[in-house]
Design a protein around this nucleic acid. Structure first.
Length: 424
DNA sequence: TCTGGGGTCCTAGGACCC
DNA sequence: TCTGGGGTCCTAGGACCC
């Protein structure tokens, strides 16, 4: 049976989520901002057409907002996460093998379906997602994940394909690949694209003709896998189970500069709470933690950045233990007199709770009481909403909280903010 | 005034061991 | 002039992804 992969990718996902509840913004330039309303991270086609690029700081386009009637939103991850879950739910009805690759992308296995009308099937998927959730998607189909990615890229780029492109047994595969820049191949980023360009390799068709030893030498076995995938040899398998995280990071820039130790400690404590809740959700414990802080590198003021890590005697997921160590670590690298822009925490050396318990010398948690406390803690927040209860070390004044000036409502996760349909 | 956040994998090099 | 060889483990850094 031939392996066939379909990649379903939402178009301008965050923008599309906002548009579900603001249909008046269809066909208009819309953007979604990063945390702190800093950079533009998602752009509608109309905004892209104004020459604005992903990653542009919002303040650089402030003069264009009025002129072109641009609408900007603060990122509303609660909303996007909820819409994403709905889409994945719909997609899972079309295949038993689904890999949720990111918040807005999923690989579907079409294994053994080479005699089906794959484009027609993809069109059905696209239409149903649009009808039931209200988000437009593009679908690319290929014998490998990398080819499905390329097909998706083409489906998105050229309107004439109606958002669907199939590379399986394509009679002009080489010609199609010659239209794809090497930097648009999945797995080839800026650095390797530049390197390949220096060798005169500019598009996917030229890349596929390269000598395998040469590619492995210049791009390690990662590059070699990409090459083989383009040739139709599947090297990247479909992972249809949820993988546990091997490290969890929580960090955010502050809404305004912070220099006080206690404020920084509040942020560290809050981020640790977020990271550890994620850790417990995947039933794991961590044996290592790291914290870091930095001033604003874009400012001319005096700069300082540092990080420090510590190992835990016993791997755990008990928040107070981590917060205690976090305080000690912060003390060791904190310097007075600097304007800090960001702090963050990282927990690593992660293993499953059961596995840790099997190890006689590394019993997870100090005792069951700690585990019970955290279970109850998480349950309360799960039922009543995040931050219903939290540690006092995380503070209540939160001077450092991020800016979110253009936040849309919690249309799908809060009863009080449900959209209202008015009959005229 | 204003420049994101969260991940993975691979490799090279150092420390250490026999 | 010579100053072994091989293995493992860990870490930092680089590359990529969304």
């Amino acid at each position: 049976m031939t392996d066939i992969f379909a990649l379903v990718d939402c178009n301008s996902f965050y923008v599309s989520c906002e548009r579900i509840f603001r249909p008046d913004l269809n066909k208009k330039p819309v953007g979604v901002l990063s945390n702190n309303d800093g950079c533009i991270v998602a752009l509608s086609k109309e905004l892209k057409n104004l020459g604005i690029k992903r990653g542009t700081p919002a303040f650089r386009i402030s003069h264009l907002i009025k002129k072109h009637h641009i609408t900007l939103f603060s990122s509303n991850y609660t909303l996007y996460g909820d819409i994403s879950a709905r889409i994945m739910n719909v997609l899972s009805m079309f295949t038993p093998d689904l890999e949720i690759y990111s918040i807005d992308e999923a690989f579907l296995s079409f294994k053994g379906m080479e005699h089906f009308d794959l484009e027609k099937y993809a069109k059905e998927i696209k239409d149903i997602v649009w009808k039931w959730v209200g988000v437009p998607v593009s679908i690319g189909i290929g014998e490998t994940k990398t080819l499905a990615k390329i097909a998706n890229h083409i489906a998105k780029k050229y309107d004439k394909f109606g958002g669907i492109f199939n590379l399986v047994n394509h009679p002009q595969k080489k010609l199609v690949l010659s239209y794809v820049k090497v930097s648009d191949i999945w797995g080839i980023g800026n650095k390797y694209a530049e390197k390949l360009n220096r060798f005169g390799i500019l598009n996917a068709s030229q890349f596929i003709d390269c000598d395998e030893d040469f590619i492995e030498k210049e791009m390690t076995i990662v590059g070699l896998k990409t090459l083989k995938e383009l040739k139709g040899v599947s090297c990247i398998v479909l992972d249809d189970y949820v993988k546990s995280k091997k490290q969890i990071i929580s960090s955010k820039s502050f809404g305004k500069p912070i220099s006080d130790f206690d404020d920084l400690m509040q942020a560290i404590s809050s981020y640790l709470e977020i990271a550890l809740e994620k850790l417990r959700k995947q039933h794991s414990v961590a044996g290592q933690m790291m914290i870091f802080l930095t001033t604003n590198p874009f400012k001319n003021s005096s700069q300082y950045a540092n990080y420090v890590s510590a190992s835990l005697e016993i791997p755990s997921a008990y928040s107070p233990g981590f917060i205690q160590i976090g305080r000690r670590l912060l003390k060791s690298i904190y310097k007075e007199g600097y304007q800090y822009k960001k702090v963050g925490v990282m927990i690593s050396d992660i293993q499953k709770e059961e596995e840790a318990e099997l190890d006689f010398f590394k019993t997870a948690y100090i005792d069951d009481k700690h585990k019970n406390i955290m279970d109850v803690f998480d349950k309360i927040n799960r039922i009543n909403g995040r931050n219903t209860i939290f540690y006092s070390s995380s503070g209540t004044d939160k001077k450092w909280a991020m800016r979110r000036e253009f936040l849309s409502k919690r249309y799908t996760t809060n009863w009080k903010e449900l959209p209202i349909v008015k009959a005229e």
